[in-house]
Simulated assay, not measured.
Amino acid sequence: MILVTGSILAREETFDDVLRSSLEHVERSRKEPGCISHDVHVDCQNPMRLFFFEHWTDEAALRTHFAVEDSKVFVRSLKGRIVETSGTKIYRAEAIPR
């Protein structure tokens, strides 16, 4: 399993637009093969920050996701609309026995 986290800090005047784009990206990504979950959350301490949390079956599925043209378009669309990005962090996780 692969876990991915990241965050972006939107400009106040672009927040609604960035949130809408982020939600569209999340909904589209959830339909990709290998996506277990893909979420975006508004930070309760800084409401201009959006936090992404993704769960993928394996590295191949994640690489495919990053290569999808719509994913690239989403990332490019953030230029000029955000103040900063935390960068993507990728974690390999073992399944937790039940």
Rank of each mutant, 00 (worst) to 15 (best):
S29I: 01
E32I: 03
K89F: 08
H65P: 05
V68H: 13
F66P: 00
E27T: 06
E54G: 07
H55C: 03
E59I: 13
V75W: 05
R49F: 01
M48C: 09
H38P: 00
A60D: 14
L78W: 06
R28A: 12
K72L: 07
D39S: 13
R76P: 00
L62N: 05
E32G: 01
E69N: 07
H41Q: 10
S77E: 06
G80I: 02
F53L: 12
R76L: 08
V73H: 11
E84I: 01
D43P: 07
R30D: 05
A61T: 12
I82E: 02
V73C: 04
D39T: 12
R30C: 03
K31V: 02
V42H: 05
L78C: 06
H55S: 10
H41D: 04
P33R: 13
V83H: 03
Q45D: 15
E59P: 10
T64I: 08
R76A: 14
E84D: 15
M48A: 10
T88L: 14
K72R: 15
K79I: 07
N46V: 08
I82W: 01
G80P: 05
K31D: 06
M48K: 14
L62A: 08
T64C: 03
R81I: 00
P47K: 14
L50H: 05
R30M: 07
R76G: 04
P47L: 08
A67E: 14
V75R: 11
I36R: 08
